[in-house]
Design a protein around this nucleic acid. Sequence first.
DNA 1: CGCAACATGTAAGCGGTTACATGATTAC
DNA 2: GTAATCATGTAACCGCTTACATGTTGCG
Lengths: 193, 193
Amino acid sequence: MSGQQLAGINLMDVKTVCLGMLTDGEASGYDMKKCFESSFGHFFPAGYGSIYPALATLARNGLVEFEQVLQDGKPDRKVYNITEKGREALMEGLANANPAHKLRSEFLATLWFAHLMTAEQIDTVIDNKLAEINEFLEMIEEFQSIECPGTGQGAQFVAGYGKHMASAFRNYIEENRKLLTKPVLADVKSAAG
Amino acid sequence: MSGQQLAGINLMDVKTVCLGMLTDGEASGYDMKKCFESSFGHFFPAGYGSIYPALATLARNGLVEFEQVLQDGKPDRKVYNITEKGREALMEGLANANPAHKLRSEFLATLWFAHLMTAEQIDTVIDNKLAEINEFLEMIEEFQSIECPGTGQGAQFVAGYGKHMASAFRNYIEENRKLLTKPVLADVKSAAG
DNA sequence: CGCAACATGTAAGCGGTTACATGATTAC
DNA sequence: GTAATCATGTAACCGCTTACATGTTGCG
């Protein structure tokens, strides 16, 4: 039970990711949100409601510092920088030897019960998901992590993961969707009877 | 804003999944937990702390009925059955044309920052994840959804998904892990200088 | 004229996780 | 004896989501 070593950071949560982003240089919460949207969000989503409170906590605990930057025409920015204490906390976060990789799929849960759905419903659900996947693949093709601290090896590895897995997902769906709408023997019999 | 049509069920949450499981016959919360553990949990995890409250809510709202079954030696069971109202609610849950499919990966978030880690740390994280994947693949091979309402087409589709994607995951990691531990040019230079 | 982009935050709510609480029987 | 299986539940907590709140500049 060593617990909360440095200000409550001991795993990969939104706070830790924000710290990590700051190792590449200063940024505002708004900047980080864009980064979550473009690259990070595909495997680790976060909205303003997570990011701003995370930054506030990090600042309270001295893991980041910020300066208020006044802009003409645009709203003020709070530009954050990571501190030495923050770097240490980040290292603790990265030290977890068993980081989770969790899927929560209402999509698969729905299709598990495909036998309770109409063929039209199933087709719609699948077509929509395929469209999503294709959109994602197009996007990942366009900007390979521009405007993010993402030129490193890790970013490449993760982007490659996204591409590889999305393709595998698409292939699986396309090759196996007929399983779901194919009438079962019992139905054929009762239709004939 | 049609909202909460039948007692608050309009998407694929734990409640809806429990309803779905009951279409295959009566079951207790304990039974359902086993089902979540064996098959469902890989893409839609749930523990007792989710399941029992879910069943209580479903019962309060008349979507399921139960009878207390006294057993000798063993604790009492509450055996649940779905009601007509429950079937309707389930259909509403299944009617969502855009069910989510969400990944939250601390694993990928960690590796994004691989350049801040030692080669040993990276290797450990990856080896552990590979072991997990292999365990999963062995398990999915052994029991293709025994002891679950899972003989249907949907269950087969989902099990196939698990196998296909886990293999793709493993392949990607094995073929690309060297990207992460390979020294970058700058490091080589500074080591030489 | 309206909408998107810029920019930061709060508050309420919701759903899931974890820990706690209980207790008999069976298998090692 | 001690751990696992059977079996159900509550309560606290934690973290993320969503909605709300505010206000300017610039573009179409």
